[in-house]
Design a protein around this nucleic acid. Structure first.
Lengths: 140, 140
DNA sequence: ATAACACTCATACGAAAGTACTAATTCTAT
DNA sequence: ATAGAATTAGTACTTTCGTATGAGTGTTAT
């Protein structure tokens, strides 16, 4: 944020300097008027593009669908349950998830059952659908 | 397209007129130099914003991702298999899919097994992942 | 300290899912 | 007309999934 303020301040100062410079050189007649106007136009043209692009990127970011942590909390999923849900959504079997998380298959079954209760679903395929709908899953 | 050309032509003419006008009024000293420069700057600033936005919209459109039928063909999924895959991805069980398509559960099992072979997966959860990756599924 | 919660694991049972065939019927294109 | 898909369906078997229940351990907040 400090960086942004610094950049903008520098930019404004540079522009004011440019204004004065262009005014001065026109007064002196040392350079053509068309050139100065064209320079101003081009500079502001690119400033417009730059600012709009910055804004567009900021708006697009949420579209890239990041994880909605508030939803996870609202549903009441614990850290471990969420981990299991992610592996599950990737297409892993209970046994595979157990290996990945270094616990027994029984544990995963317990977690999975609890996830189903919290997500109000009956199958892992439904759990995946719901998780996608809630924007809980990474990257997708 | 004709409309675009017309708009751009009008714009360019307007800008040239503006150039001449600003040059003329500065010569005459009828308006302050600062004002003219500021006007030019603001106009080009907005032109920059406008052009960038147009380009951004054109780039975003293809993101809306519809069903990629060429992929379905490439994989070799039949009509029926694709129907089953869609129901499967919605979270239905084999029995439910059988009811929805008015066939027996055995039939669905056969279809599902064939789908797995064609998608090169071992589980329905993996099939869902693959189908999403291939952009084969409706809306999502 | 102790109640509440998260995480772990086990057993046992029943329900789905998945595999591996075989086979009949119906399209479809050459 | 006929070969080759596609669709349907079955049996038999294995594996995975899901539920229920109980229980031990560790963490945390009151």
């Amino acid at each position: 944020m400090k960086k942004t303020i610094f950049i903008f301040a520098t930019l404004i100062i540079a522009l004011l300097a440019l204004f004065q410079l262009s005014k001065f050189s026109i007064m002196q007649g040392s350079s053509s008027l068309e050139f100065i106007i064209a320079a101003i136009a081009i500079i502001f043209f690119f400033i417009g593009i730059y600012i709009n692009k910055k804004r567009a990127i900021l708006q697009e970011k949420p579209k890239t669908s990041e994880i909605d942590h508030s939803q996870i909390e609202k549903i009441g999923l614990s850290k471990r349950e969420y981990e299991v849900l992610c592996k599950l959504a990737k297409g892993h079997s209970n046994k595979e998830i157990a290996s990945l998380l270094f616990v027994s298959e029984s544990t995963i079954k317990t977690h999975v059952s609890n996830i189903y209760i919290k997500l109000d679903v009956k199958r892992r395929t439904q759990a995946i659908q719901k998780a996608i709908a809630l924007q809980i899953l990474p990257v997708s």
